[in-house]
Design a protein around this nucleic acid. Structure first.
Length: 462
RNA sequence: GCUCUCGUCGUCUAGUGGCCCAGGACGGCAGGUUCUCAUCCUGCAAAUCAGGGGUUCAAAUCCCCUCGAGAGCACCA
């Protein structure tokens, strides 16, 4: 059974990169009728952020990336929150020590800092100097209650080969691998111990994580070997980048999922866009459903190149999804987007007019606010057009049938009679009614507004 | 600094020895449709396939070197 897992550390807001990875995890698991697990990696007590876990789940829900196993759903291999699995890690750390693949270390932080500084000054990689590796009195010190950590005993001068499903085999020399701390002095595991133990116990078959983890993969491989466990497939997904090619960051882009929600992006559109970063549809399609993606996606087809996040293309894609949406659904989305503040019925009437004019839900109000309240200011000064407006008011008053096409016909007639060019005529009227130079089609808008309201707005100018 | 990864239009990418004087999409530009905007349609520009050497009848595709970019190097994940 194929099992993938999203490892989430609750240290902040839900990140778009997390969704990017979760999408691949999810799609692959679903394609193979497997399971998608969400695990909370809260082993760093200092960085823990309250509510972060809740927010991540609500983000996953928004994208409909539904998990099969997680802290909130449970599952056969729980608990799924690492802070609740401390005993397990301790046990396995001990096992490693007993086998001679790990050792206790009593070095103080001060000493570690010194060692690091010294190595750095010499132009070497800052690594632990293995000071405690062969000390004899380890057991004694533990009995006296001295604080300790457990470190990985990395073999000397050994080639470690890690197979990445996207990049192929990667070779590392163990001399460049640090004696990583596995168990911290507070009894919590570090990431390395925790993932390996959990992934094994939870039967994860495909370990998917960001490319930034690639350099540490020999540590993971080593741990699997020491435990004598079968390794999962290793997959390192490309890192999303800023326009300057650095790792996607808050400073240069919008990394927070909530920003996209506030802007009125649709989750399906974002997912579609994300799917196209590093992966491409075999037929070159740009727009495709989640189901189609699931049917076609494979890790092997991912490019190892870090793609730059292009908001412009996302916007275009979002527009595509909006245009594709059913009127009733779009109405519902807009109604909710503005917290049900505006009349659902009125929104419903206006939606057909603006469906192909907005790219994000937040584009709606600037374009349609005039439906809900009369213009407060006018983008163009039309106070000189009183003669024309007077005539228009008269024409409108006389209109019995208040329908867009009839209004249009009569307006064209008026323009002709007044000897005003169509474009100029309609622009003036548009500003009078909407206050803006850009608006949905005027005749239809006027129909929706109603004869009385239109007359009121025209007279308001005079 | 050291280690690892990557390098096709501005951006996302197709491409796995001949179908490629490199295709699609976004964006840009020009035009058409139109009461504005948008949609839609048509067209154009845009990559010496990072550079240089090989191998081959034939290379974006295989090999070597150089350069460039990114990531990692914590009792953080």
């Amino acid at each position: 059974m194929i099992k993938t897992r999203a490892a989430i550390s609750p240290t902040g807001y839900p990140h778009i990169g997390t969704i990017y990875q979760a999408l691949f995890d999810y799609a692959f698991a679903k394609r193979h009728k497997g399971k998608f697990i969400v695990r909370i990696e809260d082993t760093d007590q200092a960085r823990l952020v309250k509510d972060a876990e809740k927010k991540v789940f609500s983000a996953l829900d928004w994208f409909r990336l539904e998990e099969d196993e997680s802290p909130r759903k449970g599952g056969p291999n729980g608990p799924y929150r690492q802070s609740e699995r401390l005993d397990i890690y301790k046990k396995y750390a001990q096992e490693l020590v007993e086998k001679g693949n790990a050792y206790y270390c009593f070095c103080s932080k001060e000493r570690l800092d010194e060692v690091r500084k010294k190595l750095q000054a010499e132009g070497k990689i800052p690594m632990y100097d293995k000071h405690c590796r062969n000390s004899k009195d380890q057991k004694l010190k533990i009995k006296t209650g001295e604080p300790y950590v457990v470190r990985l005993k990395v073999p000397e001068n050994k080639k470690i080969v890690v197979k990445d499903e996207i990049r192929g085999e990667i070779e590392f020399n163990s001399s460049e691998v640090d004696d990583q701390i596995l168990l911290k002095s507070d009894g919590f595991p570090t990431y390395f111990l925790a993932v390996v133990v959990d992934d094994h116990l939870m039967e994860v078959t495909h370990m998917v994580r960001g490319e930034e983890w690639l350099p540490s993969s020999p540590k993971i491989a080593l741990l699997y070997d020491f435990f004598g466990w079968e390794k999962p497939y290793f997959i390192h997904t490309p890192i999303i980048r800023n326009p300057d090619k650095s790792k996607f960051s808050k400073r240069q882009g919008h990394t927070n999922v909530s920003w996209y929600q506030e802007q009125g992006y649709l989750p399906e559109a974002i997912l579609n866009y994300l799917a196209l970063m590093g992966w491409s549809h075999p037929e070159g399609k740009e727009i495709f459903s989640r189901e189609e993606f699931i049917r076609l996606f494979d890790f092997k087809d991912i490019h190892a190149v870090g793609p730059i996040f292009d908001l412009t293309k996302l916007e275009w894609m979002n527009g595509e999804y909006i245009r594709k949406a059913k009127i009733s659904n779009l109405k519902f989305l807009i109604f909710n987007f503005y917290n049900k503040k505006y009349s659902e019925e009125l929104i419903g009437k206006t939606v057909p007019l603006i469906q192909e004019r907005i790219k994000k839900l937040s584009d709606y109000l600037p374009l349609c606010e005039f439906f809900f309240q009369k213009p407060e200011k006018y983008e163009v000064d039309i106070s000189e057009k009183k003669v024309m407006l007077q005539k228009v008011a008269e024409t409108i008053s006389a209109l019995a049938d208040w329908k867009a096409d009839v209004i249009g016909e009569k307006m064209q007639e008026s323009a002709k009679n007044l000897g005003i060019k169509n474009s100029e005529f309609f622009m003036t009227l548009r500003v009078a009614i909407t206050g803006k130079k850009i608006s949905p089609p005027l005749n239809e808008s006027m129909e929706i507004l109603g004869k009385k309201e239109c007359l009121k707005r025209i007279k308001n100018i005079m």
